[in-house]
Design a protein around this nucleic acid. Sequence first.
DNA 1: CACCTGCGTTCACAAGTCTTTTACAGCAGG
DNA 2: CCTGCTGTAAAAGACTTGTGAACGCAGGTG
Lengths: 117, 117
Amino acid sequence: MEAAKSQLSESSDHVLTAGPLEVRLDQRTVLADGRGIILTVREFHLLAVLASRPEQVVSREEIYDLVWGGAMPNHDRSVDVYVSKLRHKLETALPHWSFIQTHIGFGYCFSPRPLNP
Amino acid sequence: MEAAKSQLSESSDHVLTAGPLEVRLDQRTVLADGRGIILTVREFHLLAVLASRPEQVVSREEIYDLVWGGAMPNHDRSVDVYVSKLRHKLETALPHWSFIQTHIGFGYCFSPRPLNP
DNA sequence: CACCTGCGTTCACAAGTCTTTTACAGCAGG
DNA sequence: CCTGCTGTAAAAGACTTGTGAACGCAGGTG
């Protein structure tokens, strides 16, 4: 039942939930199936930005502005690099879930879904 | 038996217990396996603040506000220095336990756990 | 009063971690 | 093929944290 849920729900203003993933904004912590995941400041901020807009495609420029602040320099790859790092940590913690989709030529989309098998 | 317990329990409003550590708020004393640990005023206050929120990540700013009072001056390292002093005393008293985790770029977390070897 | 001691604060440096940049490989489209 | 885009490892650089030491201060002691 919960498996089909792709919508992110908010227990409160400070907690984002997506499947087995829980992002606690006020405490700067992330739980995967109740176990803590250690993220760096950037990784956490990036996840918070993406997870707060489930199912919405967000452009690199906007992500950059929200997480790094200011306009994204030309040819900057920071967003890509951090999405990669974040995906890696999420995958390690929750191997059967996928959270971030790439939208080629544009940006990324937070869209939690269980992987079939 | 108790080894697996990472949650802090409260025998009363005035005593915080975490593994073999007992913080007596009303008496301003700390016991490690029943033996007293001598802490200075600052050290005790810091421990009390952290131990009263087990498993919660607390920012340096908040710690500073609660223990020192007021806003933390820029580049102030008092919190770090006292965490270091506190860790040292706790380690001396309870070599096989770890109590305070660092969350880089943010703050500290009181998370009592026995050390494996 | 002169001295000693303990505490809190600040400083400085080493060690460690994180961020940014760079480079290269794979992929899809023309 | 050639080009543009993405994934990602690794190098280089920037920033954080741990901690010993120095300093000033206040209280206690002879």
